[in-house]
Design a protein around this nucleic acid. Sequence first.
DNA 1: CATTTTTATTGGATCGATTCAAATTTCCGC
DNA 2: GCGGAAATTTGAATCGATCCAATAAAAATG
Lengths: 359, 359
Amino acid sequence: MTSAIEGQARPIRLADIAKAAGVSHGTASNVFSRPEVVRQEVRERVKAVAEAMGYAGPDPKGRLLRAGKVNAIGVGTTEPLSYFFEDPFARVMMAGISEACDATGAGIALVSAANQEKLAWNIQSALVDGFILFCIEGGSRLVELTRERRLPFVALELGFHDETISAIGVDNIAGGRLAARHLAELGHRRFAVLSLTLGEDRTGFVTPEMVRSAVYTGTRDRLAGYFEELSRFGIDTAKIPVYETENEEKSTRAGLEAIFAKGEPPTAILTMSDRMALIAIEWLTGRGVKVPQDVSIVGFDGVPDGALCTPPLTTIAQPITEIGRRAARMILDHDGTVRRETMGVELIVRASTGPVRKG
Amino acid sequence: MTSAIEGQARPIRLADIAKAAGVSHGTASNVFSRPEVVRQEVRERVKAVAEAMGYAGPDPKGRLLRAGKVNAIGVGTTEPLSYFFEDPFARVMMAGISEACDATGAGIALVSAANQEKLAWNIQSALVDGFILFCIEGGSRLVELTRERRLPFVALELGFHDETISAIGVDNIAGGRLAARHLAELGHRRFAVLSLTLGEDRTGFVTPEMVRSAVYTGTRDRLAGYFEELSRFGIDTAKIPVYETENEEKSTRAGLEAIFAKGEPPTAILTMSDRMALIAIEWLTGRGVKVPQDVSIVGFDGVPDGALCTPPLTTIAQPITEIGRRAARMILDHDGTVRRETMGVELIVRASTGPVRKG
DNA sequence: CATTTTTATTGGATCGATTCAAATTTCCGC
DNA sequence: GCGGAAATTTGAATCGATCCAATAAAAATG
């Protein structure tokens, strides 16, 4: 058997099989990809030769180039890869994307990189038919890099003034209003806001001008929603402390400390993510502050974890899975048009909010 | 500008740029992939032309074919894609894999399919340099399909007698023994086992012969570990009901019902996954049976959820993240050898086990 | 200024398949 | 046994890049 020796040397190509079986490459190719057009006798002979020579089947690398389509969608983020498996929001979103991909048989390629150079390279060399972008912080760079690939892509956030890119997001103003109204109706009058960032690389208390010139319009809109609704209840929104923070533990805690270091503590906190809300609950509980008896907290997102924590979280739920499904379908049935979809949100009342304490 | 019109018509290739800039395609290629060998003046001219024509950069599809390497590893399973984002065990494993991939800049492609035909196709056409296989049920088919691709791959389970395939798994016998000894030392004498399947497509009570002829050696070894240790305590293992079930809610519940329908109920249940253990706790609690006062439960896996549930789960922890890291590295630094690694496990005592109730 | 050395550029070969119009073979009916 | 339709097979072209030996141009050397 020479096959073993040759097999070691160099992978066998379709052309090798064709030659060995005495047929043209065209026929050899057909044996694998369109067997019905090949005469049975020939088909079996070629297959036997392939088997004997240890042929691994048509190499997708070659097929791909010819076909043009990869049949996979890339999901990009500037977070490390593990983000997709650890972050609750990302996981629910990915489940939605998975569903759409499963239905059409498309694959998923995860694209990410901590440092900027690798990110660029990873986006440039990803073998995909389109991208879905998780735009958290640093999103605009991700968008720019992806735009250069000239493949269809969808941003999972409407927080971009740029109307030329496809995006799916939620009605942030409505969400903000729902949250604020809920608390106001429970009698709360002293608020604080734990906000997501308004632009790149800054945390700390926010001034009204900063809000007006916000780069991330998603954050700005939620704030707008909060303020609009609270004004209706006669609350002076200018006095509400708004602390902008990253969506992680350290800076969220810093925000809480800053807020509670100020004069009169709030009886209700509006947070812009469930993650922050959960961190806040833990922080407060750890200091003996009771949620919701002393302080009510509303989250934003509606991740499953919110239902399981103690106390279960009142939150503004996004249709995360549905957003994922739609994003994937936008790429899979891409028709060249720019689409911007706004999804509705829903107030889910659980136990992290309650009536303001009398007296 | 004709570029807009042409851009619509057909994607621009490197060759188009070369012609337009009046250089050879070799030089044009160098401008993008090895800019340092091209004279600055030429480089800038070519780049300007590329920009003007709306060139998206070298297409990875073409590059790939030449380079041979994809720089991505495929992770395969017979579960739907959402498994990767929803199952706690898979998620921790993926975090480990992600870590290794992040470190080398490799990408991750998720490969799965509910039905067998699509699975075959997805594996055959996945653009990856190697595979990591989640071998739960139906694993052997997955392994066979992957073997045909003749790419390096690692099975995440040693539960295959086949010594010719690389695999990473845990010391199942030791794990079984740790779990059993812990319970026996707490005074338990009446046991039941919720087992993973011993072969394909069967659930229900298991006889000793079935254990001996088990296809899935992982399951068999855990059982062996249980029995070995319990025998040392003078327990008649032949009388212990062993119910084999899928690792999901419905059949696990069926197992519990069958076990508690039998004569004397157990005071301790050995389960082969945390998932099952969690389901068991919920099932028991729902029927007013207290864990661990009435029944003690030990899991297997050591997923994070186990620490968060009520009561927190006593379990045999696998080094899941480390297994993931190693598996990824096996593919990334593949040297053609078959590797089989066995990792140690650890007993983590939490609150789902307690001393047997007196009387 | 001729000659060697260094630096840039060229263009053909290659990666591994698929496609399709044209050529060939087989099959039928008469 | 022949003409024409139907079924197979062929082989060149293509997909979009990279690589590399050969060549040309520029710079350094004597």
